[in-house]
């Protein structure tokens, strides 16, 4: 599973990255978490308000910090 956290580096984006990484580490799902900071790449996903989370190419959450439960529901199918 391939997870991307989109955000140019504001406090909320760092918070999102931490939540996603922690949740992935806790669950036994194999997933790579990557932080995308390049603005043009972020815009390439059609995301205009950060932070955003992309799971396997699907934009899951835009413009807010997700809760752990939300992240869990995306990675555990």
């Amino acid at each position: 599973m391939d997870i991307k956290v989109l955000g140019p580096g504001c406090p909320k984006c760092q918070q999102t990255e931490k939540i996603v990484k922690d949740t992935v580490a806790e669950s036994e799902v194999e997933a790579s978490v990557e932080k995308v900071t390049d603005i043009m790449e972020i815009a390439g996903y059609g995301v205009v308000v950060t932070p955003a989370v992309v799971v396997d190419g699907d934009v899951k959450c835009v413009g807010k910090v997700p809760t752990r439960d939300m992240v869990k529901s995306w990675i555990e199918k």
Binding site: G7, P8, I39, M40, I42
Partner: peptide, 12 residues
């Protein structure tokens, strides 16, 4: 957090 991504998004 919002200004630059929005700017790039609106343009592209």
């Amino acid at each position: 957090c919002t200004v630059l991504p929005l700017f790039a998004g609106i343009w592209k």
